[in-house]
């Protein structure tokens, strides 16, 4: 893509994010904000899976680390909720680093199991340390209004403009999402990104050309953990300042992988589409029929269909559609 086009696309993305809430109802804005949380987590997952070629089935648990960091610091230690977002990223980054350690020795299926184990165990861990986490009831920050940036009915004043809560959350998640996307883009363009791709394409070749593969794998997991943590932190805000263990079952981790692969592992637009897919398709599926089990059938069928029709994901489709355009430019 030419440089001009890239600027145009970036500007269009920013413009879209800025104007979208005007066309959305309040509840819909909240749903798009929730998709923004998935977007950020999938950005991180994409660094690990798309660029470094390592499978992680544990990113839902990394989101949980971020979510609980925000909830605990806000509920028990008097932090303002927004200030905990970077801290949540750092805590999940440490967890991501630890999760990346097995990747130094394990690969493929074995790594998948290792990360999946983390995802499966997370709800039980959260319930076990109930003094800290509130056990299976979770933590409700909704009533602790003083540390919260806004309330269900409140307005937030940003640069002299009053914003409805959910519009504010929309801008917050997608704003942070775009900034983090930019950071990821810079990262993968540089030396680190080249090392990531070298590890993905051939570990043997990467090692023989002097790349410390173990280091870069762990690094990818750590950075990715930061993204998932920020996504998880924002997830708390978007979920009415409430968090509980059953929100972060292993199915969240699977869902994130589905989002990443459906999105096509790569382009920014693809990742955004993947995030929207896992946010909205289950709801649409539930609207088709309310027989027990029917929503799962439709959601699963949508996943299978997308993968069969578009083996390169929604991102690939987008690329195909825009190709004639880019050629003309």
């Amino acid at each position: 893509m030419s440089r001009v086009l890239r600027v145009v696309v970036a500007a269009a993305a920013v413009a879209l994010v800025l104007t979208l809430p005007h066309w959305l109802s309040d509840a819909k804005a909240a749903e798009f904000a929730r998709a923004g949380c998935f977007f950020i987590a999938i950005l991180g997952l994409n660094l690990v899976t798309g660029y470094t070629g390592q499978i992680s089935l544990g990113h839902g648990a990394l989101m949980a680390m971020g979510a609980y960091t925000t909830a605990i610091l806000t509920a028990d230690h008097g932090f303002g909720d927004l200030w905990t977002i970077p801290l949540a990223g750092l805590v999940a980054m440490a967890a991501g680093f630890a999760l990346g350690l097995p990747a130094r020795r394990l690969s493929g299926l074995y790594l998948a199991l290792a990360t999946f184990a983390f995802a499966v165990a997370m709800p039980a861990i959260l319930k076990r340390f109930s003094g800290l986490t509130g056990g299976s009831q979770g933590i409700n920050l909704f009533d602790k209004a003083l540390n919260r940036s806004t309330g269900a009915l409140g307005h937030v004043h940003v640069l002299g403009r009053a914003l409805a809560t959910n519009d504010f959350l929309f801008y917050l998640t997608w704003g942070i999402g775009l900034v983090l996307a930019g950071a990821a883009w810079l990262l993968v363009r540089g030396r680190v990104g080249r090392a990531f791709r070298a590890v993905r394409d051939s570990e043997v070749a990467a090692a023989s050309s002097g790349i410390n593969t173990g280091f870069y794998k762990t690094l990818a997991f750590a950075i990715s953990g930061f993204y998932a943590g920020v996504g998880g932190s924002l997830f708390v805000l978007v979920s009415n300042w409430f968090v509980s263990p059953s929100t972060f079952g292993f199915d969240k981790s699977l869902l994130l992988v589905v989002g990443a692969v459906v999105g096509g592992l790569g382009s920014l637009a693809g990742i955004a589409l993947g995030a929207l897919f896992i946010q909205f398709v289950p709801s649409w599926a539930a609207n088709l029929s309310n027989a027990p089990g029917a929503p799962s059938v439709f959601f699963g069928a949508a996943i299978v269909l997308v993968m069969i029709l578009l083996p390169v994901g929604l991102g690939g489709l987008l690329r195909k559609l825009t190709e004639p355009l880019t050629r003309r430019l």
């Binding site: 699977l254 589905v258 692969v261 459906v262 089990g293 799962s296 699963g300 996943i303 993968m307």
Partner: peptide
């Protein structure tokens, strides 16, 4: 693998249905 995850949802849901 993702296709089999999709199948997971379909088969589970169908059995409930």
């Amino acid at each position: 693998a993702i296709v089999t995850i999709g199948l997971f949802f379909v088969v589970n849901g169908a059995a409930f249905w």
